[in-house]
Design a protein around this nucleic acid. Structure first.
Length: 294
DNA sequence: CACTTGACCTGTCCGC
DNA sequence: TGCGGACAGGTCAAGT
């Protein structure tokens, strides 16, 4: 579930909460979630302080004073939640969290800082991971060598998006939006939302899109990504930010998870189907099915 | 090579 | 009520 806007929201929260804190202990509650620990952890994590928190695609990079980085992928159900030692989180407390006491049964890794505040990596489905990597070598990871450009970077244009998408011209447009080597950070929610905005059916072959459609899809994608960051991301089920709180983009969603409800543009009932192996939401009036090719 | 499907997991929901 | 199965969706490996 965490896509670019959710990971960016977590990054903004951690950037405010973590820098200068010194790590006192690491607990491996589920060792597979931190595969290359604890070999280098004693030397390069314990005693290190956090210098910066960055993001590339859907991956978080927590940089340490030892010139190592904690590289974290939340996959579908990952959460990074910070709690300071003084905070109480009972009902009605101003900092009340949407998740209960931590650690809990889905806590996989716990960082404890000098002042006894903690950062919890929770991950119900255990697909996410934390890796410890020398900071200069982070971008040598296979994933980063292959991943496409950041859609919100200043030099990402609709021409670049069109050119990169045409590398997979015989695939349907939804599969290509989800392909991280074409562009970084788009997942199921914002693929459906941007295709609805551009009035393009998700099964349309990339090769069949005209320039107007590429341009419109680019505009809609940038719009939904920016709006979602502004709203603190989408909480469908698991996602919470660095303070354990929900995002509100789902209140603004036009088709995602709105099957059997009215399309906000034309009133037609929104349908749900499967495209590229994923649940897919479309308006059958706004997003016309592509004609069968002979 | 281009493209699609299944595996990795756990929890929830739906139908019988 | 209990139980099996479908589903959730990011990425990589395996299959066509």
């Amino acid at each position: 579930m965490p896509e670019l806007p959710e990971v960016e929201t977590v990054r903004i929260g951690l950037k405010r909460l973590l820098p200068k804190r010194q790590i006192a202990a690491v607990d491996f509650d589920w060792p597979k979630s931190f595969p290359n620990a604890p070999a280098d952890t004693e030397q390069f994590v314990i005693g290190a302080s956090i210098t910066d928190v960055k993001r590339r695609a859907k991956v978080l990079l927590i940089e340490l004073s030892t010139n190592f980085s904690l590289v974290i992928h939340l996959k579908m159900t990952g959460q990074l939640v910070f709690r300071s030692c003084q905070e109480a989180f009972g009902a009605g407390h101003p900092n009340e969290s949407l998740i209960g006491a931590l650690p809990d049964k889905s806590t996989r890794v716990t960082l404890t800082f000098e002042d006894d505040s903690k950062l919890f990596f929770n991950d119900q489905r255990k697909f996410g991971w934390v890796r410890l990597i020398p900071t200069p070598e982070v971008m040598n990871l296979d994933f980063f060598k292959k991943v496409g450009p950041e859609p919100l970077s200043a030099d990402f244009t609709w021409h670049i998006m069109k050119e990169r998408m045409l590398r997979r011209k015989n695939s349907n447009v939804k599969a290509v939006l989800l392909d991280q080597t074409v562009l970084a950070g788009v997942g199921n929610i914002y693929a459906d939302e941007s295709l609805w905005g551009a009035k393009i059916h998700p099964t349309t072959l990339v090769n069949d899109l005209n320039d107007n459609q590429f341009h419109k899809l680019y505009d809609e994608l940038i719009f939904v990504l920016r709006l979602a960051i502004e709203k603190g991301g989408s909480t469908d089920k698991n996602y919470v930010n660095a303070e354990g709180k929900k995002g509100s983009y789902m209140d603004f969603a036009r088709v995602f998870r709105r099957e059997n409800l009215a399309c906000p543009r034309c009133g037609t009932i929104v349908e749900k189907s499967r495209v590229a192996g994923r649940g897919t939401h479309t308006c059958p009036t706004c997003q016309e099915l592509p004609r069968e090719r002979l």
